[in-house]
Design a protein around this nucleic acid. Structure first.
Lengths: 340, 340
DNA sequence: GTGAAAGCGCTAACAC
DNA sequence: GTGTTAGCGCTTTCAC
């Protein structure tokens, strides 16, 4: 392995000069610089980031701590958003999946400290996520997609309340009277806020909240399926359902198919989280599209600004989701017309 | 920041002893060890991985260099497979997306060297991918999903030929006579091998290869859609189509819907790459499921074995895909029966 | 403008 | 068993 000492010897200069050349210090003789660069090239020298990081106490690496990269397109797109900005700015990423497991999350936070990363972008697994190791070591943190109560950290979120509200309002405007809601754990900001948006839409329409139409599931396929089955077995069956993430929607669609019901004539469906294949379904699925890639990009930008020295108070960037109206929520009037 | 010196002072021992305790050296007095551990706890000491890595010249980090984590579930599942094994073994991951861009790939390979990673798991962007920086520095490499001609590296692949062959044989057995094939760039091992499997199935059935039924597209949605449109516009329209990845399948399904044709009565469809939503389509999509998660797991295991000192020749692990038979490829006889 | 030298936090001979 | 000490490869004062 060739080190900076080898380069210095080959170029006939000191290691200090080599270092200066490599770090673009202004006060260095251009002729000497050329010699050094040539030696670097000849020897195939690559500076050790590890040694540099130890010496400067700065590390051009971030930790990206998310729940699960596999589930759906959402986190995949977030990761790409972060990575594109990071790569552009010369940072690389530790990818850390927590599976919503607080212990795993904690161990990745410890890793971030031990590796002395420059910053962390984190989707907290729950309200009890402990950022203190990062705060203690002065490592900047950006919360992505979910916030943490009482934490002074930059964050980027999707406006879940208004997205959910818009979705449910759309169903109500279509003439649906008994709109059910299948949401995720209310301890997650997403599960909670989307449920709030559902309630807000009902209230605005002057409809009382009927708890028998609400199910709190687990954001997973099976949970969605079971919740839907329950709702369909009820005496007063809903004529529409708002599902707060795409995994549960898969289960919901399965349950509706199993019950041999038709969408939207028997029950209309609107989902939070739009997927590339939503429009391939029969009927195409109405869904609230989240700007996942942008969420990653904005998170990375907030982190970058901290690394560039920004010292202001915690900022929150809110991104708006957009409702993609498709066939699964056709207004009742038009559904009836079709059946004639 | 507290260092090993602080801990040593607090515990009244030398740094060497602290280091020994932290690295579970056997020959250390249990009583002293307890004192040290207590001091570690009291001070909230966290060993610097950076310093450790510089000193030991070993780094408990891998680089995972893949094309794009966003496109489909495939790489997401691969990443999880790798991560689960890595986490278990105490390694963390650099996530590197190349977007099939050779320059980006090269720069990530340089990063892996500069960061002195313990190993690399790589999906080569093309046949010209240059592993030499890694080889020069003795960094073990595992090729995942794609191989590299003339390279001495461990690899894990899916048996594309037999998967494709099985899919097409299934269509032929169902009574389909004119099976088309939409494949990806033949420069990629996946695009090429799946096309080979298609040819093999025809040959085994004694059917001559008809080039007018074959389209080489780009593995993307639009490419699949255009290719399908062309095939449908032909005088002799195929009665079935085999599509070699899921993105192109989305385009294909779109084209079929646009042409107001029915699946499978007008045209049967089988896709390579099974998706969680395949069974939600109407009709459910027959697809070749790839063991993506296992591919990640096996790649990580090969890498681990090298890190544990295995010195043997390059190994290739081949994983078998499995055909998931669903409604989009119903045998012709049963389609006819249904229409009665 | 350049070099000598100290030291980032840790591990591993080597001595005792 | 434990401590002393010499670096790992780099950056950065401080002299010159």
């Amino acid at each position: 392995m060739t080190t900076i000492v080898d380069v210095a010897r080959a170029a006939g200069v000191s290691t200090a000069t080599v270092s200066r050349v490599l770090n673009n210090h202004p006060q260095v003789d251009p002729r000497l610089a050329a010699t050094v660069l040539q030696a670097v090239k000849d020897l195939g020298y690559r500076p050790s980031r590890v040694a540099r990081s130890l010496r400067t106490r700065r590390n051009r690496v971030w930790a990206l701590i998310i729940s699960d990269i596999r589930t759906g397109y959402f986190f995949g797109a977030v990761v790409r958003g972060v990575e594109d900005v990071a790569y552009e700015a010369g940072y690389s990423l530790f990818l850390c999946n927590t599976d919503e497991d607080l212990a795993k999350e904690a161990s990745y936070i410890e890793l971030a400290v031990a590796e002395n990363v420059g910053g962390v972008i984190l989707t907290p697994s729950g309200p009890r996520t402990d950022l203190s190791p990062l705060v203690d070591f002065g490592i900047p943190v950006v919360l992505a997609d979910r916030t943490l109560p009482g934490q002074q950290a930059d964050s980027v979120v999707v406006d879940n309340v208004s997205g959910a509200c818009e979705a449910v309002t759309h169903l109500l405007a279509g003439g649906y009277k008994h709109v059910a809601c299948i949401t995720g754990p209310l301890t997650t900001t997403t599960g909670y806020q989307r449920h709030v948006g559902y309630g807000k839409a009902l209230k605005e329409a002057g409809i009382p909240l009927d708890d028998s139409l609400v199910r709190v599931a687990d954001f997973r396929e099976l949970g969605g399926q079971l919740a839907m089955q329950e709702l369909l077995d009820q005496v007063e069956r809903p004529d529409a359902v708002f599902v707060t993430n795409h995994l549960m929607t898969i289960g919901v669609l399965q349950a509706i198919a199993d019950a041999k019901l038709a969408i939207p004539s028997d029950i209309a469906v609107v989902s939070f989280d739009d997927m590339p294949w939503s429009s391939l379904l029969q009927p195409p699925l109405t869904a609230v599209a989240q700007p996942a890639y942008d969420l990653g990009v904005e998170s990375a930008r907030l982190l970058l600004s901290r690394l560039e020295g920004y010292k202001g108070a915690a900022r929150m960037v809110t991104l708006s989701p957009t409702l993609q109206v498709r066939g699964s929520s056709l207004p009742k009037s038009r559904v009836a017309a079709r059946h004639r």
